[in-house]
Design a protein around this nucleic acid. Structure first.
Length: 314
DNA sequence: AATGAAGGCAACCGCAGAAGG
DNA sequence: GCCTTCTGCGGTTGCCTTCAT
C-alpha cells in the first residue's frame, strides 16, 4: 500500500486520553456528529489523529456502551459465535449490544481463550486438542512410574508426588473428563441437524436448565438461531473435577457442556465415530491401553466401575 | 512493607477493502 | 480501470492494577 499512517504527522498527541480531551470529543460529536474522522480533530480542537478519536469514541465515549463484567449469557454467546465466526470481533460485537469489538477481543484473549486451552480445547477450532491425547501415554507412564516408586521407595515417591506427580494426576483426571465429553459428543452429533444455525444451537445440549440460560442469537442473514441452554454438568467429588473447576468454577463446567454437543464445523471423524481407528478418544484409549470388548468403556484401567468419577458422571 | 509477577485493559499499528475522483 | 483517500478491523503493545511472596 505504502500510504503513511495518519498518526505519523508530528506533534500529534498519543497515549491515554485526558478528561479534557474526552469532553471536547464528546461535545463535538454530540453537537455535530463525527462526520469525517480525518477532519474531526482539527474542528474539535483536539491535537489527535482522526483514527485515535474514532477509537476513543467507539471504544469508550459512545453513550450506549455497557461497561463492567461480562455476564454468563454474554460469555456463552461469545463462545458460540466465535466457534462459528472465528476472530470476527466486530461481527460478534453486533450480537452483544453495548459491547465493543475491542472489549470482546480483550475478554476473549484474557479469559475465554485461556480457559479453553486449560480444558484441552483448541481455542481456534473449539475442538479437543489432539496433542492432549498424544501426550497422554507419557503422562500415564509417569503416573505408573510414580506408583512403582511408591512401592519401592515411599520417600522418593513422596518427592515426585509433590512435584510432577500431582500434575499428572490432574492431567489424567482431565483426560478422563475430556474423554467422557467425547463420548457424549459422539451421541449428540449423531442427531444434530446439518445446518449452520442448528449447529450453533446444537453446541449446547438440549436438556437441563439448572442454571442454564437461553441465548437467542441472530445469524448474519438475520435469521434466528435456536436458543441455547447450558446444562449443569454433574458435579464430581474427585480431585480432577475440583482441579478443573478451580479454573473457573461452574463457568468451566458450562463451557464444557456447551462444547460437548457438536459444532458448526464439519463433523469430526475422530469424535463422531467411536470405532474410527483415528479416533482421538477411543482409539488411543482402546488400542493403547487395552480396553476389552466386555467393558462398557474402552479404558477399564482408567474407568473402573467403582471410579467415583464414573459413578458421578453416570 | 517492599518487590516482582501476572492479569487486565486501553490504545496504537498496519493492513485490507470500500468509496470517490 | 487506476489511483488516492478514508474507514474499519484484527493483532499487538505497553501501562496500570492486583496479587503473591
Amino acid at each position: 500500500m505504502g500510504r503513511s499512517p495518519c498518526c505519523d504527522e508530528s506533534g500529534l498527541k498519543k497515549g491515554p486520553w485526558t478528561p479534557e480531551e474526552d469532553e471536547k470529543l464528546l461535545q463535538y460529536i454530540q453537537k455535530n456528529g463525527h462526520g469525517s474522522w480525518r477532519t474531526l480533530p482539527r474542528l474539535a480542537g483536539l491535537n489527535r489523529c482522526g483514527k485515535s478519536c474514532r477509537l476513543r469514541w467507539t471504544n469508550y465515549l459512545r453513550p450506549d456502551i455497557k461497561r463492567g463484567k461480562f455476564s454468563q449469557e454474554e460469555e456463552q454467546t461469545i463462545l458460540h459465535l466465535h466457534s462459528v465466526l472465528g476472530n470476527k470481533w466486530s461481527a460478534i460485537a453486533t450480537h452483544l449490544p453495548g459491547r465493543t469489538d475491542n472489549e470482546i477481543k480483550n475478554f476473549w484473549n484474557t479469559h475465554l481463550k485461556k480457559r479453553l486451552i486449560q480444558m484441552g480445547f483448541d481455542p481456534m477450532t473449539h475442538r479437543p486438542r489432539t496433542d492432549f491425547f498424544a501426550a497422554l501415554p507419557q503422562l500415564i507412564a509417569l503416573a505408573a512410574l510414580r506408583d512403582q516408586l511408591a512401592a519401592a521407595d515411599p520417600a522418593a515417591a513422596q518427592l515426585m508426588q509433590a512435584g510432577a506427580g500431582a500434575g499428572v494426576d490432574v492431567a489424567i483426571q482431565a483426560a478422563k473428563l475430556q474423554y467422557l465429553q467425547c463420548l457424549l459428543r459422539s451421541a449428540a452429533t449423531a442427531t444434530a441437524p446439518d445446518t449452520e444455525a442448528a449447529a450453533l444451537g446444537a453446541l449446547c445440549s438440549p436438556q437441563g436448565t439448572a442454571h442454564g440460560s437461553a441465548v437467542p442469537v441472530s445469524t448474519d442473514d438475520g435469521g434466528q438461531l435456536l436458543p441455547c441452554t447450558f446444562p449443569e454438568a454433574p458435579a464430581s467429588s474427585t480431585e480432577a473435577s475440583q482441579g478443573l473447576s478451580s479454573y473457573g468454577g461452574a463457568d468451566v463446567v458450562d463451557v464444557f457442556a456447551c462444547h460437548g454437543g457438536g459444532s458448526s464445523l464439519p463433523p469430526l471423524a475422530d469424535l463422531s465415530d467411536a470405532t474410527n481407528p483415528a479416533d482421538g478418544c477411543s482409539a488411543t484409549a482402546s488400542s493403547s491401553f487395552g480396553g476389552g470388548p466386555s467393558s462398557p468403556l474402552p479404558w477399564p484401567e482408567f474407568f473402573p466401575d467403582d471410579d467415583p468419577f464414573i459413578t458421578d458422571f453416570l
